[in-house]
């Protein structure tokens, strides 16, 4: 994770288009300016960033399912639960799966596990549209390579 740049996923561990599921790894950094304010002397991973991590995990699943042709944008968060504190240095496993694929939107459910225990979960809604410009598409290509997005899923697009 690089919190300042919203890089909340380190590596895709498993992606199954058949099961429509994804599992990623995300290591909370030991140091971050975020922790200087959240909170002084008691650093905690902000809940909004945990939700963002679940959104990014879901987003990569959607990008794969849509053959890298469309970009998902977070539209709604439901039933988000921060069940435990997440602290610097924790190694997180995040999984996401599809609840429903509608026309122009998709709903997912996502879980964050830490130390074998459920730390957070949420139900998320995304709108998706064709990539709005080449710059964003190019950025996502770079990010895909960085986190080990399967080559096959990229070339299918």
């Amino acid at each position: 994770m690089n919190l300042e740049y919203f890089h909340l996923i380190d590596r895709i561990a498993r992606l199954s288009l058949d099961d429509r599921t994804i599992t990623v790894e995300a290591n909370v950094p030991e140091q971050s300016t975020i922790f200087e304010g959240h909170f002084p002397g008691y650093p905690l991973m902000p809940g909004v960033l945990l939700i963002e991590a679940m959104a990014q995990t879901s987003g990569w699943l959607l990008i794969a399912l849509m053959k890298f042709q469309r970009m998902p944008f977070l539209a709604a968060v439901k039933e988000a639960k921060m069940r435990t504190f997440v602290t610097p240095g924790e190694k997180l496993t995040i999984d996401a799966s599809i609840i429903h694929e509608g026309s122009g939107f998709t709903m997912t459910k996502a879980n964050i596990m830490s130390g074998g225990k459920l730390a957070c979960n949420a139900t998320l809604t995304f709108r998706h549209v064709p990539f709005p410009n080449p710059e964003l598409r190019g950025y996502m290509d770079v990010m895909a390579k960085r986190i080990g997005f399967p080559e096959q899923a990229m070339t299918d697009g």
Binding site: A75, A76, H100, E101, G102, S103, G104, F105, M107, T125, R127
Partner: peptide, 24 residues
């Protein structure tokens, strides 16, 4: 945005996929 929740419920209830993108 609220209509997405309605579309989700309709899709589920009727076993269809409302073509919202095409309609829009």
């Amino acid at each position: 945005l609220d209509f997405l929740d309605i579309a989700f419920a309709i899709d589920k209830a009727f076993g269809i996929k409302l073509p919202l993108e095409r309609w829009t």
